[in-house]
Amino acid sequence: MPTTAREQITSPLDMASDQTLADRAADGDLRAFEVLVRRYGALMRVYATRVLGSNDETDDVVQESFITAWQQLRTLEDGSAVKSWLMRIVSRKSIDRLRARRPHINIDDMDAPAPESHAPHVLAEVESQTEALSRVLAALPEDQRRCWTLRELAEYSYGDIAAEVDLPVSTVRGLLARARKTLLREMEEWR
């Protein structure tokens, strides 16, 4: 069977609200689920890539997230909240990946492939600000990056982040503050 793109038919479902799509998908409607996958898959991929620090495992994490979502959609009481529910699933899966990785490589101790973070100013001038931010983010310690991503991409509250990463709120605030200060300081170099 060819694995080329599925034909994308514009159907009224593309216009349906999150609530309608989530309700239908919970009832077992694969087409409604597909619209949700298309609607939020890209954001989930961006998110997972940022949390993981690379896109090597993004496909796996996002796929697992959607499979979990499909199985558990019936437990979602308010279908209109499906976006944040999906983001929660993908962040949990991403964090699980990070935890699973840890026994093999301790990212915080790894100092090898981060020469870019000490890149000369010349480089900073030629790369765009977004590229620079991307680079600095990737070089952040894992716990800071995770908190930053939950806060800035998934728009979690401090309390929700704390629950998600299993740390006290005060620690989360501290990690976020550090991440921001690092980003601000690095950003000063981009002018």
Binding site: A5, R6, R38
Partner: peptide, 16 residues
């Protein structure tokens, strides 16, 4: 991400 080809969508749908 939005400009990517569609294979990842298919692979999700094929696996549920």
């Amino acid at each position: 991400e939005s400009a990517r080809d569609d294979s990842w969508v298919s692979s999700i749908l094929d696996n549920i």
